[in-house]
Amino acid sequence: MKRIAFAIAFFVALLVAWELTVRSGRWSPVILPSPWKVAEYLWSSVLDGSMAEAMWVTLKRLVVGYALGVALGLPVGLLCASSRYVDDTLGALALGFQTLPSVCWIPLALLWFGQTETAMLFVVVMGTLWSVALATSMGARTMPAVYDKVARTMGSRGIHKWTRVILPASLPFLVSGMKQGWAFAWRSLMAAEIYVTILSGFGLGQLLHYGRELNAMEQVIGVMLVIVAIGLMADKALFAPWERFVKLRWGAATQ
């Protein structure tokens, strides 16, 4: 209770400081709008449906791309862990692509797919895939060898062993890999949306971009707040439960 009160007090103080800075008149309201103006913009964007639409477009790209990236990354990671040859080749490639900032995929995606949804999806997949693959492979390779012996003697082979032993054993690595993949995907999607306009859907990044074009600073800040909120909610909704599970089952020793 005390902690919640403290946190609320902090954010109220932040808003008050912001408002006072605006009222001091040192900066033009075009550069620094008041919190009320931002709230006003957000409310109007909710009323005219533009915010809901942008969120829908962005989240659809993100969720579909992310799911695809994870679905591809898991088998790639398991494959890398299963053979030294695959690890030397595909694994090295994954490591290289993972260090490549995923924004760098945007020019290539535009040339290959044009200004289409596919290009957006491609950027998100590339942001997710390699982080997930590397984490999976790391998790599978650091699994104690005796788990494999237990599985084999119990009669667990093939798909059963991969899904019931190796993947769950990799979970501590997997959760952080999927989190990193999510962060990369989210960042690269925003970059892509700010960078290119795609007529098939007007996402949050584009909303942000046009805020700048129109010199509508309250729109820029408002959209930024929405992006932050989505990031926080994804963390709480998608990853916090898994992190709790890992902590509960593996004990405090891991992570």
């Binding site: 005796v146 788990y147 012996k149 237990v150 032993v165 769950p168 054993a169 089952r249």
Partner: peptide, 10 residues
């Protein structure tokens, strides 16, 4: 085995 090798996720 020498280690119990129980699966921590279960």
């Amino acid at each position: 085995f020498q280690e119990a090798a129980l699966f921590p996720w279960l």
